[in-house]
Design a protein around this nucleic acid. Structure first.
Lengths: 339, 339
DNA sequence: TGACACGATCGAAACGTTTAGATTAGCGTT
DNA sequence: AACGCTAATCTAAACGTTTCGATCGTGTCA
């Protein structure tokens, strides 16, 4: 900018005023300055600007896994929204690991991001501590924490799973295996509650042997399914509480020599883009990824626009059960349906 | 830092020296400073540091679509690699749009990223122009441009498609439909060349009506497939040159009332994580995503470590044909195979 | 004892912006 | 002619670091 000012024979203040439109500058000087900018190929240094202004127009986004199609879609939507608003987004994947998450959030705050969207992992307290003393707005995505009182957009997980399990029960299933992620994040807690609620509403017992836990990865779904299928009285249906794990479920079913839905019905959380093309077409709980991403972005953009003092807002969206052909009717129901 | 210095009754220079280990500071002062840092909860301002040092320890990464599983995987690997190296990564999705890409690269350069990994879109010249006068190292990912002479990691696309098409020919297919992305990026060019080469090597004609173009999206694959299937003498096999488009292909086949592989064989570029679980299990060309991501990261990290003047390096990796059950033997071959 | 080297510490400039406040010029009013 | 007002422009400080060179004791050696 100094060079531009010299070349145009004006002060840097005038150059700055012209570039930012913060003051009127005469047509004559404007022209000289613009010419100089072109000649020199000047580009404003955003770092210096950030230092002075105290804002980077950059936000941080952390998700557990970008390869999980739910997060992939949400990240994509969020990225577009901030792109439109002239913000850059720094992406971090925490790999469902608490320490990684802490490091990455610190890395982002270090870099002076203006805001944070976090699909957190693990204990909320640590996150709370980190976030409290960095004074930036935070939006929680998909997963809330009790201790942290801030904007959030989540799904009505309990209701969504309730609907899915009730659907299975209506099909005649009585022993329904359930594969959960670990309980330290809210959705897994709520989804499990939906499972229990549906069973209880139908007067069915909640049997511990039918509930397995995994750490969100395909291999965890595989192992959990293997265990469920080895039970003396094995379930006739399996619900997987997250998307990558259901791939493990399908592989286990295949490896054990069974087939879906003939031998065992399967449903899961989170829709796949291709789920109605290949066989079996999985019945899934579809999250409104577009809305989730947009709402999260809007909440943060609103804070960034200056609305700092509004009380925390929590948006709860509804999932939708996408019924396809991976669950088959059982027993009496099968007959009445096929009749 | 000023406050820390005051609290510890030392100069800011000494605080800086201690924090960065750039000079020895006596145990006594060290202790006072560390205490002050804890008391105040001081965190170094990375923006100010960047301004002074001229480096942000941040890189930019642009891909056409994060929802394309190939890019999802590669992004994930790259993110991990830079995370390990203490770099943040800013992610942009260009949506296969040239203007968006230009804007985003400018946005990234504005923010003074130390380097750039680009899976470019469109004409290389514009990219070249932008990149030339921002003086940062650039690594091209997946797609090279003629004009731009810089580090790159790509696949041997021609060979990979040659192998896939040859496989189809060996199965007895003679009319093989081919759905390409638009030609302004190198892989589409090379993949098409592989298609032609395979046909010619087998003495088969390259028929224009069997080649369709799309813009990488599912809907494009759908339309292209509809056209191919409406031909008077329709192909017995279809190869889709990218991954999202093959979903469209499968939907078109379903909607038209045909089935794969009984009525028509399908193969495509890029593997899916779930491709061997659902039916039909797609035969695909699998790219070594882990290696691609790591190599790209390494090339850039090497430049960032100071190796600026080495000549451009171009790494070419090999794809692998994953044969599954979406292509069936035809005619005489079918008999000899089943015999 | 004086000269000297060395280690520890500090002062101040620099990175490239933004912006508050000062200055200047031009013009209309009284 | 003196005055004030406005619009245009400039000067200089500030943002929070890093780092060069200067300073100041202290101990060593001749």
């Amino acid at each position: 900018m100094l060079h531009v000012a010299e070349a145009a024979r004006v002060s840097v203040a005038t150059v700055s005023a012209l570039i930012n439109g913060t003051a009127t500058v005469s047509p004559e000087l404007s022209q000289r300055i613009e010419q100089a900018i072109r000649d020199i190929g000047y580009k404003r240094n955003a770092i210096a600007r950030s230092l002075k202004m105290g804002t980077t127009r950059t936000i941080g986004l952390t998700v557990p896994h970008i390869t999980n199609p739910f997060f992939t879609d949400v990240v994509s939507v969020i990225q577009q929204a901030f792109d439109r608003a002239g913000y850059a987004v720094m992406l971090c994947c925490t790999d469902e690991d608490l320490n990684t998450q802490d490091d990455q959030i610190r890395l982002l705050l270090d870099r002076m991001v203006d805001g944070l969207i976090v699909a957190r992992v693990g204990d909320g307290q640590i996150l709370k501590g980190i976030v409290d003393d960095a004074n930036v707005p935070v939006v929680l995505l998909d997963r809330v924490c009790e201790g942290v009182d801030t904007d959030a957009v989540v799904l009505d997980n309990q209701r969504a799973v309730f609907d899915a399990i009730t659907y299975l029960i209506d099909l005649g299933h009585r022993r329904i295996g359930y594969i959960s992620g670990s309980f330290d994040i809210s959705p897994m807690h709520d989804r499990m509650a939906g499972y229990r609620e549906a069973l209880q509403a139908a007067g069915l017992p909640v049997e511990n042997e039918l509930v397995r836990f995994g750490n969100f990865h395909e291999v965890d779904g595989y192992n959990a399914t293997m265990q469920l299928l080895s039970l003396h009285d094995r379930p006739s249906a399996i619900f997987s509480a997250n998307n990558p794990m259901v791939i493990g479920t399908m592989k286990a079913i295949r490896d054990i020599g069974l087939s879906c839905p003939q031998d065992i019905s399967v449903a899961c959380f989170d829709d796949f883009p291709w789920s109605d093309v290949f066989q079996p077409q999985l019945t899934t709980v579809s999250q409104p990824v577009q809305a989730i991403g947009e709402q999260a972005a809007n909440l943060l953009l609103d804070r960034l626009a200056g609305n700092r003092d509004a009380p925390p807002r929590k948006l709860t969206l509804k999932g939708r059960l996408m019924i396809r052909n991976s669950c088959r009717p059982l027993g009496a129901v099968a007959q009445s349906v096929s009749a």
